[in-house]
Amino acid sequence: MTALQLCLVFSSALFCVGLVGALARSNTILVLLGIELMLNAANINFIAFWRFSPSPAPATGVMFVIFSIAVAAAEAAVGLALVIAVYRHQKNIRLQEANRLKG
């Protein structure tokens, strides 16, 4: 297995750890953290492809990840604010109980 494939397997595994966490836990904070892990896995892919690409254009992968981290930071802030708002509304943060948008 080449180093690139190792990196990709690493990122897939991290992605799936995050996915399982988001799917299996009912605590909204943990679900959000799972999503953060998935985002990190995606960033690892960017860096891995940049590192091992045949002719790395200067700093492309790095640029991707910088913007991605900025967006992820915004997402974390809004997400956790939503958690607090949900908590204020229903006095707990179990995700399955936040289903007011049910059709």
Binding site: S26, Q96, A98, L101, K102, G103
Partner: peptide, 20 residues
Amino acid sequence: GKAYSRAQTGDAHGYLRIIA
């Protein structure tokens, strides 16, 4: 809309599972 809204279970886990 009423017919479609039945798919909207409000269960975030369910949505994520379906995406996966």
